[in-house]
Design a protein around this nucleic acid. Structure first.
Length: 333
DNA sequence: ATGGTTTTTACTGCGTC
DNA sequence: GACGCGGTAAAAACCAT
């Protein structure tokens, strides 16, 4: 049987076991792993899947309100926007490798040792800077993609946690920031139950390239996703097709009388299909699309197959083949 | 690499408006 | 004739081995 990409044998999170000092009283609803209270960042994070349960209550917005455009201009007291594109050119410290002072005299034994220590620390700080820059670039990327896909703050937050964990484990080096960021976003969108397909993420990523000779760059995101899923031990279950319904129905809201009714029926259809084991091996997005079609017939608010296929980025043919099995599962229920 | 499964694409025929 | 729908065949994509 074909298995879903994310379905895999359970594996224990060794790190969590070796660290008995982090006693957590709560467990994650999503994966059952214990939660870690990360006070420094003011957030509660799941050890198992990296899901952010609650983040800091700090409001990063302005501390004033403006009721008109002019007022906003007047009250805005920040300078130039903080650019994440800064690099350290000319700003970082350089320590000469020569053991000489400014006059060219060689240093005493004591001074030499001191300079060696300083060089060592300087090197460390600099690599910290490099990581920081990397992170900043990734975060702008993540922000941009998430906004383009209409994903909320929770997803962005979860994505950045995942990305930081990748950095901590030195997984970024040697890999494109773009693909790692996109893969983290993909994982986070699934964890937060507002999944986007790999393809959707691909189309808004910087890797996107629709030139015909180079059609399959999305594989790189997929590979990166598998990599982080393995390394971080994310045990993501296959996406529940019901999670797609709201977004798809939103897309189709103009073609239907009662969005709510169709959505609810589609939900029931999918539940019935789940019980009859129709889901196994099928793409969740296609199942959702097919359920919507089936539901639109039942609710007497029929939409055309092509309309749904277009709105859900699937094919008519797939909807045709799947809606029948779903429908029979629903009826026998 | 290969094989089994699903998804997509292209094309065709049928019934209805 | 245009449209929606159902179907077939074959190619493409995908995952597991």
């Amino acid at each position: 049987m074909r298995r879903h990409p994310t379905e895999k044998s359970p594996q224990v999170d060794k790190e969590a076991e070796q660290n008995p000092t982090e006693v957590a009283t709560r467990t994650c609803d999503e994966c059952g792993e214990r939660l870690r209270d990360n006070e420094a960042q003011g957030e509660v994070v799941c050890e198992g899947c990296g899901l952010v349960i609650s983040d800091s209550a700090i409001d990063h917005g302005p501390d004033w309100r403006a009721f008109s455009k002019q007022e906003e201009e007047k009250k805005k007291r920040v300078g130039a926007p903080v650019t994440k594109m800064k690099h350290d050119k000319g700003l970082s410290t350089n320590i000469s490798w020569k053991d000489e002072d400014a006059y060219g005299k060689s240093l005493s034994e004591k001074q030499r040792k001191k300079m060696n220590r300083l060089r060592e620390w300087n090197k460390r700080f600099r690599s910290q800077d490099a990581q920081d820059r990397n992170l900043k670039r990734a975060l702008t990327e993540i922000n941009r993609m998430a906004s383009a896909l209409g994903l909320n703050e929770q997803v962005k937050e979860t994505t950045s946690i995942l990305y930081r964990r990748c950095q901590e484990k030195n997984m970024i080096q040697g890999r494109a920031i773009e693909s790692m960021a996109a893969a983290c976003l993909y994982a986070a969108s699934r964890q937060c139950r507002t999944p986007r397909t790999l393809n959707q993420i691909y189309t808004v990523s910087r890797l996107y390239d629709d030139s015909p000779q180079n059609p399959k760059m999305s594989n790189r995101i997929n590979r990166a996703y598998r990599f982080i899923s393995n390394q971080l031990g994310l045990e993501l279950k296959p996406v529940d097709p019901r999670n797609y319904l709201n977004r798809y129905m939103n897309e189709l809201s103009h073609s239907v009388d009662s969005q709510q009714e169709v959505t609810n029926t589609a939900k029931q259809i999918l539940t019935a299909g789940e019980n009859e084991n129709v889901h196994s091996g099928k793409a969740p997005s296609c199942l959702a699309a097919s359920a919507i079609y089936a539901s639109s017939i039942i609710c007497d608010q029929k939409m055309t197959q092509s309309r749904i296929a277009e709105a859900t980025n699937t094919s008519k043919m797939t909807i045709r083949t799947q809606y029948k099995t779903l429908l029979s599962a629903y009826k026998s229920d």
